[in-house]
Structures are given as structure tokens and as C-alpha cells.
């Protein structure tokens, strides 16, 4: 799941704005397929972002976050060229990550 996140990180006036788009079904476990079978829940439970050792965002999610989730946030103290890494973990133990250089 290497390319499961698209990340853009842009620096402006000392503030880095991160926009991350993850590829994930975010199944709630409440939908049924055409044969009436419940589609099992499959959703991201945890997303965090780091710059080097520094945690700049940590979050826990429920199944109500939309399919192919988007996360936007801002932080200060980084410089252009620094790498922002975003990682997710889901309820099946799968994980994904992506990195972007701050532009």
C-alpha cells in the first residue's frame, strides 16, 4: 500500500499547510451488498503526521469519515524541503503511508 496517500505540503508565511488524500473504502459495516449481505466494516482508525521526530498531527477516526479520506491541517516551525510523513492504520490492521517534501 505504498502509494495509498497523496500529500501536498505548502509553506507560506511560516505556516505549512498539509493536504492529504488517502485511498481507502471507509466501509461503515452498515451497508448491504446486492445480495443482502452486510459489507464488513473496513475503515481507517488512526492517522498521524510527523516531520522528522516531531508529531504534528495525531487523530482517531470512526467509520463516518468519507471514502478516500481527506485531511487538512496547518503547523509552524518547519522549512521548505522538510519531509512530512502521513501514516494511517485501519481496523483490519492494514496501514499506509506517504511522504511529501514541503514546497
Amino acid at each position: 500500500m505504498a502509494a495509498s496517500i497523496r500529500i501536498r505540503a505548502k509553506l507560506s508565511d511560516g505556516i505549512t499547510e498539509v493536504k492529504a488524500l488517502m485511498r481507502h473504502p471507509m466501509e461503515t459495516g452498515q451497508r448491504k451488498d446486492s445480495s443482502g449481505q452486510t459489507i464488513p466494516a473496513h475503515y481507517i482508525t488512526e492517522v498521524s503526521a510527523t516531520v522528522g521526530e516531531r508529531v504534528v498531527m495525531r487523530s482517531f477516526w470512526g467509520a463516518a469519515v468519507s471514502q478516500n479520506p481527506f485531511l487538512g491541517f496547518r503547523f509552524s516551525g518547519a522549512k521548505a524541503g522538510d519531509a512530512v510523513e502521513v501514516k494511517w492504520l485501519d481496523n483490519k490492521g492494514e496501514s499506509g503511508s506517504g511522504t511529501a517534501k514541503i514546497a
Binding site: 482517531f60 463516518a64 469519515v65 491541517f73
Partner: peptide, 29 residues
Amino acid sequence: VIEKNPNPLAAAFAIPEGTEAFVQTRVKV
């Protein structure tokens, strides 16, 4: 928190020092 959802709490975010008190996402309602 989305009042009428089956599980109203959608997401929880920690804002570490140096991160702005701002979050943006997309949710199911």
C-alpha cells in the same frame, strides 16, 4: 460529532504544540 449519525463521533484530533487549532476533513452525514 454528527448528531444523527449511527455513531455520532466521527473523528478526534490531537493538536500538538506548533500545530494550529484547525482541521479539515470530509464526513458522511
